[in-house]
Design a binder for these strands. Structure first.
Length: 432
DNA sequence: TCTGGGGTCCTAGGACCC
DNA sequence: TCTGGGGTCCTAGGACCC
């Protein structure tokens, strides 16, 4: 049996951890630039605020009168990531074959193959996570991942009857869950597929399961066929294994304002490239390709729009910030055009492989060993003291591109400073 | 005024090979 | 006039996920 542990309203729960005055109130967490709603408390969901809703459209959904009741917070991903690590490490110590699926979700195997014992084990797990980390979690379990997803939704939506744990442990339970599951709520069925399936009279997961295999395969692709099989209890894991190493690494931002200065956009690109290279090194990988893109403001009609990207292959795959930034700058100068406003830029690393598999280029003049030693030293300093203790000089422009964060929770912020102090000192200890 | 960021997989079509 | 058969690899674009 697959279990899926899913944190409830994760980002909001993280904010509440550091500011209990948020409990019981409608809270939303906003994306970078305070742009869109990316997490909602149950109270905010009940008011009718949709997921992904642009912040300025919230009032359209709930009415201007109730707008002041909603607490809007800027996201603090570093904090959420850290809390996620604590939950995942706790799960890793308690469960078999943990697969971290996202910042707030993880699959693992039920330990006993016995519905009564498994249920008790999972209830204890939910209680343990709440006790040691403080985040409410729901767990669903079923014969396949796709069904476990459905089970966890049921657990989350019915906390009173399920106490946060629900298992699809018999065909009877599976059948009745599928009848109540809208086709759009099935994992792997998005907007377009929902529309295509509805047009063929398929509105629920139960109706989808009844649809003939041959038709599913001929009308759609192999991914949809797998989802179809998983709903019937056939595990398709072998066909789509959960990958561990990243195949691409990206860092990009929408800027706080429209930027025209070449230096400013370039500083952002350097920052993204350096950030990507750091992640690459932390995974023990190298990249063979660097891609850079820039883009104007797609919502503004009063200024000319320009968007472009450029991809360059490295002479020798590398993870050195110096090399990655060098190529990123080269790509950037190919696509930057004066006279346009820029609202977003990003860097993406592709053709990623383990650093042990690098094939040296005969004509490459770089001294890789020297660069690797330098990078190790910089990473060591940044791990020990602060993320930005040492960085490349070319990142330091005015920082106009930095996004807006006007809704940081101040009371939680001070609690966080105390906490980051604790982390820094514990890091020092561990390195000693 | 205001609209996120970071990933994966699949498919069709083109280029190229023998 | 007339133009095969079988295969691989790469890429762009689309769809999905959180």
């Amino acid at each position: 049996m697959y279990c899926l542990a899913d944190c409830n309203n994760f980002f909001v729960s993280c904010e509440r951890l550091y500011d209990p005055t948020l409990n019981g109130r409608p809270v939303v967490v906003l994306s970078n630039n305070d742009g869109c709603v990316i997490a909602r408390s149950n109270e905010a969901k009940a008011m009718g605020i949709p997921m992904g809703c642009p912040a300025f459209q919230i009032k359209k959904h709930i009415g201007t009168a109730r707008l002041n009741d909603v607490i809007q917070l800027s996201a603090r991903h570093t904090l959420y990531h850290d809390i996620s690590l604590r939950i995942m490490s706790l799960l890793g110590r308690s469960c078999e074959r943990l697969e971290v699926y996202s910042v707030d979700e993880a699959f693992f195997q039920a330990p006993f193959n016995d519905p009564v014992k498994d249920e008790q084990f999972l209830r204890d797990l939910v209680a343990k996570i709440y006790k040691y980390v403080g985040i409410p979690v729901s767990i669903g379990y079923a014969p396949t991942r796709t069904l476990a997803k459905i089970a966890s939704r049921i657990a989350k939506k019915n906390p009173d009857t399920t106490q946060g744990v629900y298992g699809l442990t018999s065909q009877h339970l599976i059948d009745s869950a599928l009848v109540k599951t809208d086709i759009s709520d099935v994992w792997g069925i998005g907007r377009r597929l929902t529309e295509a399936l509805r047009n063929r009279g398929v509105g629920s997961a139960a109706q989808f399961v009844q649809y003939p295999n041959s038709l599913v395969r001929s009308l759609f692709n192999i991914t949809v066929a797998h989802t179809h099989a998983e709903l019937k209890g056939i595990d398709c894991t072998a066909a789509s294994p959960v990958t561990v190493a990243h195949k691409s690494i990206m860092n990009s931002r929408t800027f706080g304002t429209l930027i025209t200065s070449r230096n400013e956009v370039q500083a952002a690109v350097v920052h993204f490239a350096e950030h990507c290279s750091r992640q690459l090194r932390s995974e023990g990988s190298v990249a063979g390709t660097v891609m850079v893109y820039v883009r104007g403001d797609r919502y503004r009609e009063d200024v000319p729009f320009y968007s472009n990207s450029c991809q360059l292959n490295l002479a020798t795959p590398s993870s050195s910030a110096l090399t990655i930034v060098h190529y990123a700058l080269q790509a950037f100068s190919c696509i930057f055009k004066e006279g346009f406003g820029y609202r977003k830029a990003g860097v993406m690393l592709l053709n990623i492989k383990p650093e042990t598999m690098v094939q040296l280029n005969l004509f490459d003049k770089e001294d890789h060993n020297k660069q690797n030693r330098l990078m190790r030293a910089i990473d060591h300093i940044n791990t020990r003291y602060a993320t930005q203790a040492v960085n490349l000089a070319s990142t330091s422009a005015k920082g106009e591109w930095k996004p807006r964060q006007q809704h940081l929770n101040q009371s939680a912020q001070s609690a966080l400073h105390i906490y980051s102090g604790m982390v820094a000192s514990s890091k020092k200890k561990s390195s000693l």
